[in-house]
């Protein structure tokens, strides 16, 4: 890797001051697992990295709140995976982490990095979107709330300014909602997915009251499929209804072609897996 400087501020505020809204060669680093890949490939040559690893410890902790979870952005994915609070309030997250990368990466990668990278293949963005999670984002002008749903602007792009940091994620508890996440790998089992589908539903097979369906990986960014959601609400959930939901999802999504599949292939995957994910949620995914 080409040489760069590393700043290690001890507070989030200090870290924000060290960032520059106009200089893309200065970037924050959490676990560094995603940035290292880009730096090694020479795609990203930083002049300076601002490490978040020494900021206040509270940003590395998880707390159960009245209605869900507060997760510090520097929380590692391994801590998230092992948290009893997460398993209780949002078991979908715990299940998702089991197949997210490997233990060594999860030991180091952070929640903030998993979101801010804007990589459409990652698992947490669709899952947190389907759960209706929001973020606390901090910048020079103070803090703002941002729904994870509104975070992604495009392929590896977010709406964050270069001097803004994700500070916390807030995840509403599942409660009686039913949830599932499916990822479809077309290469080896642990390859990046060709498609991810996250589903969170209120109701049962007799009728769905509310639904959030999010697709990722096949699309340039994690995307809510609102017409599929609308098709699912109301009627009895049977094969006919599920076929309509699958078709709506397949028509609605905008696909990207890559080594994991062509556009037409991913469209068919979408049709099938949105159906399967809804079924899995209703049947209680393991």
């Amino acid at each position: 890797m080409t040489p760069f400087e590393l700043a290690e501020p001890t507070s989030l505020k200090e870290a924000i001051k060290l960032l520059d809204p106009d200089d893309p060669t200065i970037r924050p680093v959490g676990g560094g697992t995603a940035l290292m890949l880009m730096m090694k490939a020479g795609v990203f040559k930083p002049v300076k990295l601002i490490s978040l690893r020494r900021i206040e410890n509270s940003y590395s902790t998880i707390a159960a709140t009245g209605d869900g979870l507060r997760i510090g952005a520097m929380t590692t994915l391994a801590a998230l995976e092992r948290s009893a609070d997460v398993k209780k309030a949002a078991p979908l997250i715990t299940r998702t982490l089991k197949t997210l990368s490997n233990i060594r990466v999860r030991n180091v990668a952070t929640v903030g990095g998993a979101l801010a990278h804007g990589d459409p293949h990652m698992d947490l963005p669709p899952v947190l979107m389907a759960l209706g999670a929001t973020l606390t984002v901090m910048g020079p002008k103070g803090e703002r709330k941002l729904a994870v749903e509104d975070l992604f602007a495009g392929y590896y792009e977010t709406v964050l300014d270069k001097d803004e940091l994700i500070a916390e994620a807030h995840v509403p508890a599942h409660g009686t909602k039913k949830a599932a996440y499916m990822k479809v790998t077309t290469g080896s089992a642990d390859d990046w997915p060709a498609l991810g589908v996250a589903v969170v539903l209120e109701g049962d097979a007799g009728g769905i009251k509310s639904a959030r369906i999010v697709a990722s990986a096949a699309t340039d960014k994690a995307t809510r499929l609102k017409s599929a959601e609308a098709a699912l609400i109301g009627g009895k959930v049977d094969d006919t209804l599920l076929a309509k939901v699958g078709d709506a999802a397949a028509d609605e999504a905008e696909y990207i072609a890559d080594v994991r599949g062509s556009i037409s292939y991913k469209r068919e995957l979408m049709r099938v897996y949105v159906r399967r994910a809804v079924r899995a949620a209703l049947e209680g995914a393991k």
Partner: peptide, 27 residues
């Protein structure tokens, strides 16, 4: 592999396994 995939660079840091290839020494 240099990409976190193969485990040949495994090191234990403060009790946790990490991929040494992706872990800045300065961490």
């Amino acid at each position: 592999c240099g990409q976190g995939l193969c485990g040949c660079c495994t090191v234990i840091v403060d009790g946790l396994a990490v991929s040494g290839c992706l872990y800045l020494a300065a961490f």
